[in-house]
């Protein structure tokens, strides 16, 4: 591909990204990191698990995103009595031309932006119904596979404090999520701004600024961003260091982690790093990009050991230990020299 075309793609990526971010920000106050990470996951073709206490704007963020992207949006409120068929759809008997035939009735997953609200309230069986959808972007019912229209991404939310009547997501399900983002309490200024924006008679209006095609193009663009072998090695070394048996694993990992991050984590980090590089007007992935996205990409992929669970260790702390312990690219080579 020509340099000019690539440059145009990169320009398009940044423009669209900033437009989307700007438009979302007209409704969502603060949460800049969350918005950026959600958008990075979206353009990278990944799904996002948003975790936070009720009332922090998780659902609002997702609905706003769907409006901004002008994509087909569906919402599923997960409850314990929700059945898989309620999610993916089912065969119903219909009369057609005098014959009674089974016809597939698509479920709410047949959309482009799926909000799986309070996903941990559904039974594991229902949660698992989303597995194929999230990974293959298709639904198989009665031996027939139905493709979902791209782009498709799931934005799930879960409440970390209410554990009664919830079913923790299985590891396989969690691994499908590109990022797990923790939505925190807004700052004082953001709080005030939220009050201002939502207490009037006219809520802020959100316009669609990007299409599905834009998202797909952005995805294609970011996958072209090159990464040097040194940085790639660093990424792999970092992900491997989350496994307790790895020789480079820090003590925190050895003590508190049962299973480390999967290769999907490395894929997610690489894709997110590429997106971040483009956003910073770079055409290569830097070690800093990896460090910036490592925590949201790996925190839900670490399975803590009993010691970790009982000690109340957070995956974020373990990942930070990994990031701090591992040598940065080049560190081992210019350690003789001092940077003043």
């Amino acid at each position: 591909m020509s340099v000019i075309a690539q440059e145009a793609d990169a320009e398009h990526f940044r423009d669209v990204f900033e437009k989307i971010r700007g438009e979302i920000s007209t409704f969502i106050v603060g949460q800049g990191d969350i918005i950026e990470h959600v958008l990075i996951a979206v353009v990278s073709g990944g799904h996002v698990l948003l975790e936070g206490v009720p009332g922090l704007g998780k659902t609002a963020l997702v609905t706003t995103l769907s409006q901004v992207l002008d994509l087909h949006f569906q919402r599923i409120q997960f409850t314990p009595d929700l059945l898989p068929a309620d999610v993916v759809g089912t065969q119903i008997l219909v009369e057609r031309g005098g014959d009674k035939v089974f016809e597939f009735q698509p479920g709410p997953v047949f959309c482009q932006v799926l909000l799986a609200d309070e996903i941990n309230r559904a039974t594991p069986k229902t949660q698992s119904a989303l597995l194929e959808t999230m990974q293959e972007r298709s639904v198989t019912v009665a031996n027939r596979t139905h493709r979902l229209e791209p782009p498709f991404f799931v934005l799930a939310t879960q409440n970390p404090i209410e554990h009664d009547g919830t079913y923790p997501l299985p590891e396989a399900q969690l691994d499908r999520f590109f990022f797990k983002l923790t939505v925190s309490l807004p700052s004082h200024a953001d709080f005030v701004e939220i009050l201002h924006r939502t207490s009037g008679n006219t809520p802020p209006e959100v316009r669609p600024v990007a299409s599905g095609e834009d998202i797909l193009r952005m995805g294609r663009t970011l996958r072209e961003v090159p990464i040097a072998k040194e940085i790639e090695d660093y990424l792999v070394r970092l992900v491997r260091a989350t496994h307790p048996m790895d020789p480079h694993a820090p003590d925190e990992v050895r003590h508190y982690v049962r299973h480390g991050a999967s290769p999907r984590a490395a894929q997610a980090i690489l894709a997110a790093s590429r997106a971040r590089a483009l956003l910073q007007n770079r055409f290569h992935v830097a070690a800093g990009d990896i460090l910036a996205v490592a925590i949201p990409a790996m925190r839900h992929r670490l399975i803590l050991s009993f010691e970790g669970e009982s000690a109340g260790v957070l995956p974020d702390d373990v990942i930070r230990a990994v990031l701090d312990s591992g040598p940065r690219p080049g560190d081992d080579r210019y350690s003789d020299y001092q940077i003043h």
């Binding site: 090159p226 770079r282 830097a286 080049g330 080579r333």
Partner: peptide, 18 residues
């Protein structure tokens, strides 16, 4: 080595190394 050092010293985000 000098490329890696320059990246770190001039904050080039691994541009020279890449």
């Amino acid at each position: 080595v000098s490329a890696a050092f320059a990246d770190a010293f001039f904050r080039l985000s691994d541009a020279l190394t890449s």
